[in-house]
Design a protein around this nucleic acid. Structure first.
Lengths: 196, 196
DNA sequence: TTGTTCGGTCAACGGCTGTAGAGTCGCGGT
DNA sequence: ACCGCGACTCTACAGCCGTTGACCGAACAA
């Protein structure tokens, strides 16, 4: 093998990356609280103290591990593209979304910092989706419902592993979801809708 | 005051109930891992050892605290009642669902036991909802999508506290959600739907 | 070669947690 | 009046965790 003369900085970056990778896996599988620095270090073949030396604290390690998760707000011109855009995001999700994202999602219900992270990301996604919804006076609400719908399906599928969803193909799910999302974006509520 | 001559067994039941109440609050607010027996005992004005003596272990305390959460499967005859039934469940949810339920939901992503609990309950709910969906070959999948949709909205609203949902009235949310649920139950997917 | 920087390890501390066992005190039956 | 049972408390242990500081050896610059 022609070893490319691995310099010291190279080695450093490599270990750092390996730690980050294993941390992502662990955080995604067990969440923030149950993930131990010792376990991450062990998986990366490294001493726990090194993790601290590189990342300062468990919290910062988590931050670095999930920093790639800044959901790009889907941009879509009209309501038709709206559902497609969202489903594309979900399509990516159903195929298996990045481990950093799984990590934040897994921790969001028990770790306030992760919850903030998700709230912000979802907020951006809602704003982006809202722009694609026809100008109702409740665009934001409709967008929020669409986004949380996708969130629920993703949780049920990826994090809870509901059999009914695991058995289905992503395409089928997307096909069934599309009319539902369109209903959220387009249709006006029936005249008997209760106001408040 | 006519004190009803509180017997010893009465006092015992009262303390037990108080511990269970505070445990539910704590589990609902912080999840299983972050809830400490010491905190529960403190909130109940009781020694931590007593909690152990009464409930055996933290795990059993959790079990007792959330045992009321066995979501009754909604029974509905046709697809029309389908959405209404589910929304009624959500209506209850939006009004503030029982703390035991919040506790399991909060813990489900990080605690496998809670995840099992939710998977089972959701499975029952899916089966119940599936019976109300017109006889497609994918009734169960459609029902699962409807249930996870509601799950997502509930999480976004109750556990994450998304502003866009908090600001809206439950009735409005229900009105917007209804067509989406109907779309899941009724409409056949377009002929271009990809099979698998 | 010599001195130094730096990737990496070792050992340890302090805090918090679930849990166990012995003990205290007062109500309730006799 | 007496005694026992049971509600409740005190104290302590053992384990695990995040975090720290001293230390070692090899790669680098001079």
């Amino acid at each position: 093998m022609t070893s490319p003369r691995q310099t010291r900085a190279d080695r450093r970056r490599a270990t750092e990356e390996r730690i980050l990778d294993k941390a992502r896996e662990e955080f995604a599988a067990r969440g923030f609280d149950r993930t131990t620095i010792r376990a991450v270090a062990g998986a990366a073949g490294v001493d726990p103290a090194l993790v601290m030396q590189y990342f300062g604290s468990k919290r910062e390690l988590f931050g670095r591990a999930v920093q790639t998760f800044t959901a790009p707000a889907p941009e879509a011109a009209d309501a038709d593209a709206f559902a497609d855009r969202m489903l594309a995001t979900l399509g990516l999700k159903l195929g298996g979304l990045p481990e950093g994202t799984l990590a934040v999602l897994r921790s969001m219900l028990t770790d306030p910092a992760a919850a903030d992270h998700v709230r912000t990301a979802l907020g951006g996604q809602i704003a982006g989706a809202g722009a694609a919804v026809p100008a109702h006076d409740d665009r934001e609400l409709r967008a929020a419902l669409a986004v949380t719908t996708l969130l629920g399906v993703t949780i049920g599928h990826q994090l809870l592993g509901l059999p009914a969803l695991r058995e289905a193909s992503p395409d089928r799910i997307a096909a069934l979801l599309r009319p539902a999302l369109n209903a959220l974006a387009e249709a006006a509520p029936g005249p008997d809708a209760a106001g408040a």
